[in-house]
Design a binder for these strands. Structure first.
Lengths: 223, 223
DNA sequence: CCGGTTTCAATCAATTTTGACTTTTTCAAG
DNA sequence: CTTGAAAAAGTCAAAATTGATTGAAACCGG
């Protein structure tokens, strides 16, 4: 069932030979939660069984259930882990010094990269499953709300000059969120085309309009 | 397990006393597929078991498996049924004589109503599940592609004057699709606010811009 | 009224998943 | 080197789901 070697040094085993049991335990726990997240992305939420998680983490199922007594406990930990990772990655993306001082472009790009990352897929799977699973919903809601607050705060930080013009600001935020998430979700089943680049460029343009910023001379290449 | 009366006259039982067995069978089959669709909406795809479908359809499980030999057969039929219903409803919405000759408004409104309908939720559940279920994906893909072709055709029909200006036309279409679907999906877990009405109004406005139509004097109330 | 077909109901075995329980291994401290 | 606690592995029964099989009931044509 678990043919992998008992102590396969994964990417979380890089802790120095402090050899502490507590540290090893923590390392194993993150290994498990990350395996769970990978399973969400690869197999979807409902197909993520404890067996599958243990297999992907390179542990026996019994070992996993020692760290997390039940499936839900793993899910809980995975949600927290995913949330903090997501938050950290997003913060890093928006606080990165802008390459050309183009706040709009950077903000859009940051969230666009974010929603195309596997982490967003994992969170999306959880969100969809939570729609008809009240228990999961109660676990997910705090993390989701926290992320959205952070998202909004990041937007305020990126556009400090935009204070007071609340109505258009909110509109630009909502529009961006819906367009980018809608595109990202669409791309889960469809493949990207050149047309979609035009949508991103157009979104940039409209946000600038709403912000009262000057039009960009020409749209530079998007990666 | 199935406490409901054996021959509960549901909304599909209203066929006249033609008493034919073949017709009754067809009626029962649509009853089953519609029950399956309801289950997708209410419990999600993965939790929609054969037991649950039979229960919701008011049949014994054995009776259901007589009409559809396997779970997948039910899903297949449900996808087809859902697809034709979706297509019919959408066609009706877009071909309805516009109340005030405002094509843009009508088109947006039509698709907005569509994505807020339970049928869209069901299709969405299927689409998400299909992401990690190749068998379901192969069932769903034809229906999805057919609907998208029809969607595009409907857009062309609603804006006959827009031929030739392909680039902006496609942009308007893509934008609308992403915004509306993104909003609809967001509303599956969040609740609607007044801010979202502004996004719809803004979308109307931008489509008019792209089409080169005059700005609307004032935004009438949305229902 | 009868015969055969269709529809429906109920039971059964096989499989999967889960969580509890037991046993073995690892490892740091004395 | 011994020892005891933590970690890992393996085993087990209970529950759920599925599809097959069998038996009963309704219905139509003759």
């Amino acid at each position: 069932m678990t043919p992998s070697s008992p102590s396969a040094p994964d990417d979380d085993e890089r802790s120095p030979p402090l050899g502490w049991q507590a540290q090893k335990s923590a390392s194993t726990r993150t290994q498990i939660t990350e395996a769970a997240i990978k399973c969400f992305v690869e197999y979807g939420y409902s197909r993520t069984t404890t067996t599958l998680i243990a297999e992907k983490a390179g542990l026996s199922r019994g070992a996993m259930l020692h760290h997390f007594p039940s499936r839900l406990a793993v899910v809980r930990a995975a949600v927290e882990h995913l949330h903090s990772k997501r938050l950290r990655a997003f913060r890093k993306a928006v606080t990165k010094p802008s390459t050309d001082g183009d706040h709009v472009r950077q903000g859009v790009e940051a969230y666009w990269s974010h929603v195309r990352h596997p982490m967003f897929v994992a969170f999306f799977e959880l969100a969809v499953a939570a729609r008809s699973d009240k228990e999961l919903a109660s676990i997910l809601r705090p993390a989701q709300e926290a992320f959205e607050r952070e998202w909004h705060q990041a937007a305020v930080d990126v556009f400090p000059e935009w204070r007071g013009r609340g109505e258009k600001f909110d509109l630009a935020l909502d529009l961006s969120r819906y367009v980018l998430e809608g595109m990202a979700i669409s791309f889960l089943t469809h493949k990207e085309t050149e047309r979609d680049q035009r949508v991103l460029t157009y979104l940039d343009e409209k946000i600038r309009e709403l912000a009262g910023l000057p039009k960009l001379a020409d749209a530079p290449e998007r990666k």
